[in-house]
Write a protein that binds this DNA or RNA. Structure first.
Lengths: 119, 119
DNA sequence: GTAATATATGAGCAGATACTCATATAAAGG
DNA sequence: CCTTTATATGAGTATCTGCTCATATATTAC
């Protein structure tokens, strides 16, 4: 494991802090996944989709009308959310109804909103 | 307010759902701010910085050593987090010590981690 | 004052991202 | 079978982002 001192010009003032931070640090793999979760929430269109689905399942063209963006754009975002396992769909004829797949989604949005509103 | 029907090719299958979703929708301004909050968490380097600062305040070069990225890169990320009012600093001589400015930061990270680990 | 240290900041660039547009697919109706 | 409807998907593109590199600033030591 590199200490950081063996790298060009990389000084450490408080080695103890760095060492103890390394001990409690989240693994690189988990950090990567974590950042992708937040990335899923880090776009206005996806946020609005996730928030709308909190109330009830909706199909692509309804979401398109709600957000006032193209159905293609909605579909692309839904694919990303599907890949992230945040939403799932159910087919009824030609219509696909999307729903939230995870109870943490509303919690994360609510917590972030709380943060905003306390500023 | 546009109903969505007056736009080229924008169909609505379930008008009732769209209308009720519009009623409970978060305002555009808040959606924008919300997405920026999540964006602040949506990068591995920033996540690691925020997580490290949960334990104790740290200076730029310590964070640089911890993350193994340049001090300039850390400084740029810290500026973003400062602008977002997620961190603040205190000067002691030439050293700037950064700390978390918001109690929701650890909560958001913990909640997202919980989500990950329940998969 | 000058030099050194710790950090900030602007420009520039490679990669990521959120859309558009055209095309493909899947189910239902005829 | 062919057509329509609802959605998916690939390519292309403009914008955004996270870094590097060079330079600027602020504080301390001399």
């Amino acid at each position: 494991m590199a200490t950081g001192q063996d790298r060009c010009g990389c000084r450490i003032i408080h080695l103890d802090k760095v060492v103890s931070a390394r001990e409690t640090a989240i693994s690189a793999a988990e950090i990567e996944k974590l950042s992708q979760v937040f990335k899923a929430f880090a776009d206005p269109s996806r946020l609005r989709i996730l928030h709308a689905l909190q109330e009830e399942e909706m199909c692509v063209c309804d979401l398109s009308a709600l957000l006032e963006i193209s159905e293609s754009a909605v579909s692309h975002q839904l694919r990303l959310l599907r890949t992230m396992r945040l939403v799932a769909n159910r087919r009824e004829g030609t219509v696909l109804y999307y729903r939230l797949l995870d109870r943490h989604v509303p919690e994360l949005i609510a917590l972030a909103l709380l943060h905003l509103r306390e500023e």
